[in-house]
Design a protein around this nucleic acid. Sequence first.
DNA 1: GTCTATAGCTGGATAGAC
DNA 2: GTCTATCCAGCTATAGAC
Lengths: 209, 209
Amino acid sequence: MPPRRRSPTDATESRSALLAATQRLMLEEGYAAVSSRRVAAEAGVNVALVYYYFDNMDELFIALYRHGAERNLERVEQALEDPQPLWRLWELTYDFSTNALAMEFMALGNHRRAIKAEIAAYSRKLRTLQIERFTSILEGYGVDLQRWPAASLILVMLGTSRFLQLEESFDVEIGHADTVAVIERQIRDLEGERQPVSKVATISLRRSS
Amino acid sequence: MPPRRRSPTDATESRSALLAATQRLMLEEGYAAVSSRRVAAEAGVNVALVYYYFDNMDELFIALYRHGAERNLERVEQALEDPQPLWRLWELTYDFSTNALAMEFMALGNHRRAIKAEIAAYSRKLRTLQIERFTSILEGYGVDLQRWPAASLILVMLGTSRFLQLEESFDVEIGHADTVAVIERQIRDLEGERQPVSKVATISLRRSS
DNA sequence: GTCTATAGCTGGATAGAC
DNA sequence: GTCTATCCAGCTATAGAC
């Protein structure tokens, strides 16, 4: 393919195009494929613009991470307002693209300090929120929190779904259906049959803010 | 540091040195740090030797993966012979270096076909073995396998421990102690207090082969 | 804001001497 | 088996014209 040229009228969309291209590349070819040249070509933009909009490649990654993190936090908050927060959490973490991107960032953060710090800060914030809210939700369900602390249920769900997805991206699916069935049965025991996302929740969220 | 020179007498240890250096680099700095030049320097060996012993970098990675995979398979088989196989599986997957390396390989395999295929093949083989053996082990414990298929217990354990470790490598540990406590309580319910690795198991394994 | 041009580095891989 | 030398590609980042 020839590099996509933007129409001359789309002004300072370049920054967004670079972010979008970075995400696309990370998902399709892994973070190692994201070089200034490739991301620029993919965005249909000149290489030098990468350094005009971002101090360096790390900053580009961090900008993308923050953007995704904010969106994800909003989705989690919305899920927590839903009448079936466990079902929503499960759906959220079983969403492929979110998860795959998170994995790429973790692999990337593994050897880049600035990115590592960013991920750690966000993860702590998110986890704290999840535990706090699920503690009262599960209490409402009559769960014995001494035996089953909210943190343990959340981490088991997150860990399992991430692991299943990781394996699935390698076309390994042995035992997955059994595992999903067990987890969904446990959720059903607490929240009943899964219902579609409640629109009421979104409205009440708006009302309360 | 100056590159470590080997004593002139150590003959064809170069190959092993390269493999060891690759593993060290992957663990300490991530797979992206493994270049032919760096791995050669780290092993105290000339760059050209990398291509003498391995067709290309992918083959070097695959050779290292196979070596680790074989060793791991042996350890799993030994764990399955132990009187407390669940405890042993838990310990094995909660071992840091095994896990960290596996993660690096997965990130690497994510965008290198040859490596991806290697990981997939090994994972399927390992999972099949684990499910087969744990099905009869759990049956012996009186577990209701309809409600709790062996695969689901194994995958939840593996997924959770991997996730906890991943987070811990980012210094995020919120809720981890609670989660570990819950899982270890469940194991204790089935296998009693954790005992040190049984030597008898190793002997009986030898006898039966 | 966008581009060209370029410096300076690191990478994979090979040819050929010893 | 081991080494030197080398080719060529791709990368980050900057200077400076427009």
